[in-house]
């Protein structure tokens, strides 16, 4: 049948062609009138469609009912509240007081907000290469058909499966002043003194970035791997015959063909990096000296430690606006290269 032309919404063409002898006439009149788009096809064909792909008006809504209710209660309602709260002062107990744009004014001279803003962007810039470039190399590496490769794939994906709390506990043993990293650094002669990495205001943020990257690389690698396996092998064989080396094959074939996947991974990584919270909460609580205070953590801390729901909502709103802008920029960047 010709109607499956690969569009993502399949054109559900009428079945009432010559091969369908008798559309069930007795049902035609029971089909409820639709306000859709009549008149394009022959009335007979479109009524037969009504039976197959145009069910009763309420049928699709019945199917979507649970989804729509959850959407209304846990997305629309809170989203409206979030918008409102940003213009109120509210401590969760006494009645909210409207304060206009005060919450946004306050952000302008809040040094901790500035710190959080800068840290979030540092986090973003640190995360992007770890989440976008390194996993592509990993995917190329584990896409080889050599014995035991499945075990190596599993090893790289393992941190993805594990909760951030468990990751935090795990890394504490590595990053302790007496831990493995300090030992490596001192025995290689890079530094004389062992460092308590997460307690140093210089090192805590880089450590968090590396840990977040380490934890999420596996999922990005899997996305690339799915993409790599869709590349026809003969492309590489042809390039090899033409004398292209590994580097050329990587930059001239793999990377260009992976751009759609880069669009996916970079968007995911960006959204994740901008709202990083759990790793900060379980490892540093924003410290030492606010050096790991990110926007995500600041929102949480304002709301659930200081009970300033209004101010916290305003910050969340700014964070959301930043994320939308970044998503649009990212979309444009990856679109042009396609």
């Amino acid at each position: 049948m010709p109607q499956q032309s690969g569009s993502d919404v399949p054109e559900l063409a009428p079945v009432a062609d010559q091969t369908t002898p008798h559309p069930p006439r007795q049902r035609i009149r029971t089909g409820p009138p639709r306000g859709g788009s009549p008149g394009v096809r022959s009335p007979r064909a479109s009524r037969w469609r009504a039976q197959t792909n145009h069910p009763a008006v309420w049928t699709p809504w019945l199917y979507m009912l649970p989804g729509l209710v959850l959407f209304a209660v846990f997305f629309v309602w809170p989203a409206v509240q979030a918008l409102q709260l940003a213009f109120y002062e509210y401590d969760g107990i006494s009645a909210p007081v409207t304060v206009g744009l005060d919450n946004f004014d306050r952000m302008l001279d809040d040094p901790r907000f500035h710190e959080a803003f800068v840290n979030s962007f540092l986090f973003l810039f640190g995360m992007m290469p770890l989440a976008v470039a390194v996993p592509l190399l990993l995917a190329v590496l584990v896409n080889q058909k050599i014995p035991g490769i499945q075990a190596f794939r599993l090893a790289i994906v393992m941190p993805v499966v594990v909760s951030m709390v468990a990751v935090a506990v795990t890394w504490k043993y590595v990053l302790d002043a007496q831990g493995v990293l300090s030992w490596l650094v001192t025995s290689l002669g890079i530094s004389d003194e062992p460092t308590a990495w997460l307690l140093s205001s210089d090192w805590a943020l880089p450590c968090l970035i590396v840990i977040e990257g380490w934890k999420s690389m596996g999922i990005y690698m899997m996305i690339y791997l799915a993409g790599l396996q869709a590349i026809p092998v003969d492309l590489y064989e042809a390039a090899q015959i033409d004398g292209a080396g590994i580097w050329h094959r990587l930059t001239k074939i793999t990377v260009p063909l992976m751009i759609p996947y880069v669009a996916v991974t970079s968007t995911m990584a960006m959204l994740d990096a901008m709202q990083v919270f759990t790793s900060v909460y379980v490892m540093t609580r924003g410290g030492p000296q606010d050096s790991t205070m990110t926007l995500g953590y600041y929102v949480w801390s304002k709301a659930f430690e200081d009970y300033e729901f209004g101010y916290a909502s305003a910050i969340a709103l700014v964070l959301w606006a930043v994320m939308i802008i970044l998503a649009v920029v990212n979309y444009q960047l990856t679109k042009e290269r396609r």
């Binding site: 209660v73 846990f74 997305f75 309602w77 809170p78 989203a79 409206v80 509240q81 979030a82 709260l85 969760g92 959204l271 901008m274 709202q275 919270f277 926007l295 995500g296 929102v299 949480w300 709301a303 729901f309 916290a312 909502s313 969340a316 709103l317 964070l319 959301w320 994320m323």
Partner: peptide, 12 residues
């Protein structure tokens, strides 16, 4: 984002 929804969702 989860961060934006955390507070109002908690209130809801």
């Amino acid at each position: 984002p989860g961060e934006l929804m955390l507070i109002p969702r908690f209130l809801v």
